[in-house]
Design a binder for these strands. Structure first.
Lengths: 239, 239
DNA sequence: GCCGGGCATTAACATTTGTTAGATGGCGCT
DNA sequence: AGCGCCATCTAACAAATGTTAATGCCCGGC
């Protein structure tokens, strides 16, 4: 059941059976969330951290004028709020973008891991660091990439991240986001989001229908995105 | 000499003398960097992590078309590349925005801290988590705030962060960034950056000259920015 | 099978933001 | 003092992006 988490962590460094067992012991109960439901509410002080077993979730903030901005997308094997273990108070909400199957890790057991399992602690720390690296890449995309390139970059990133946890199907993957939701990822209006998607389609590098993205020309998509996966730390090495 | 670091960490939780000593022992040598010099190069695999003792540094990425985007600003007491301790390879550069006095912490000693000092490890982990929280706030600002609000938010954030490490002078602080550099923070053209600064000045909430920002109306600036410091985790509590 | 709502798409127009170019002004250097 | 560099600031115009509104389509509920 925790296969995705193991795959996620093991892409960075070897994960021992003992460590897998420690993670499994940290898990308490599981739960399903429907589309649009908050998995964690802004302002909450969780006592558990949430692991995505299946589905797509997103972190978001809402402004006074009603504007919403997603700050990350979380795929299976991701902890959506591991940072709350130390940050304590949620400064943003986390919502299910598709039906989500999740599992909760007790903070007291995570704390025990930090006391007794330094290597596993470093791997969990690393997991949050990759989170940060992705944030930095998003900042660059929002600030200095063309919108087409930004979208292409997002598709490259999602494809690679989903591939790690075996959620791709050849060169296709499921992307359960409406254009309005995608607009809140890239920081665009819905109308312009539609234009940008149209532009990327016209180039012919992706086929995109029924919430399924098929990459037709990975090389060119990567070129348009200037995608360099270094920031995802995909190499397996001692940490 | 490490006062800023202690202040930075102790704002989140109590820091014992033993822990301060561990940090001091982790430090090897110090160094000065001139404006514009790279403190850490993109692609490097550092064996030390860099602590800012004095000055302002920034993380950045450069795109093929020459566009540059800063992804964070680092003030005294901040580790600029603590994440490299586990990420291993730098996917971005770090440059001195003002003359910088820095000190290096050996990765082998940081590793020893993770093996032997769980609470201090959590505080260091937390430090990188606040980094991530700041990134998320920047993403929101870039995606959904007006440019004036974005700039106001940046000023609020810098003021509070500098205040923690005692680098403010009443309601003033030194901001050694040119408008071109600020443009690469907000993701704007230089001309438009100039317009936005002018707009904020005209509102009369800040006085901004000679690289010194004086906040004339903190309440209103905060309002314009919709600034809520929760994400900086300024409360002191067990972590 | 019909109806209603949400989503994608397009058009026309408004606003924001970028580009190019030039003017101004401070400040260190000689 | 004079020179030249660099940052700030402005203007005029171009391009990107947002807004409002309308259309068509699919799909689930009745």
């Amino acid at each position: 059941m925790l296969e995705s988490l193991y795959l996620n962590l093991a892409q960075h460094d070897a994960l021992s059976d003992a460590e897998k067992a420690l993670l499994a012991e940290a898990m308490t109960f599981e739960r399903h969330f429907a589309v649009g439901q908050d998995i964690v509410a802004s302002g909450a002080r969780p006592t558990h951290s949430t692991l995505i077993l299946d589905g797509l979730a997103a972190r978001y903030k809402v402004l006074e004028n009603g504007g919403r901005q997603f700050t990350s997308l979380q795929v299976p094997g991701d902890f959506v709020d591991l940072h709350a273990f130390l940050l304590k108070t949620m400064d943003h909400g986390i919502v299910a973008m598709s039906p989500c199957h999740v599992m909760f890790a007790d903070h007291s057991r995570l704390r025990a891991i930090t006391e007794e399992a330094p290597h596993l602690t470093r791997l969990l720390w690393l997991d949050t660091l990759v989170d940060g690296a992705i944030h930095r890449e998003w900042i660059v995309a929002m600030g200095r990439r063309s919108k087409t390139s930004h979208l292409a970059h997002l598709l490259c990133e999602l494809f690679v991240r989903l591939q790690v946890v075996q959620r791709t199907n050849g060169m296709s993957f499921h992307l359960p986001l409406s254009q309005a939701e995608l607009a809140d990822v890239l920081g665009l209006s819905v109308v312009h989001m539609n234009r940008v998607i149209g532009a990327l389609r016209k180039v012919g590098v992706v086929n995109w229908a029924n919430h399924t993205v098929t990459i037709l020309d990975w090389h060119r998509l990567q070129e348009i995105a200037e995608f360099d996966p270094t920031y995802l730390s995909l190499t397996r090495e001692p940490r």
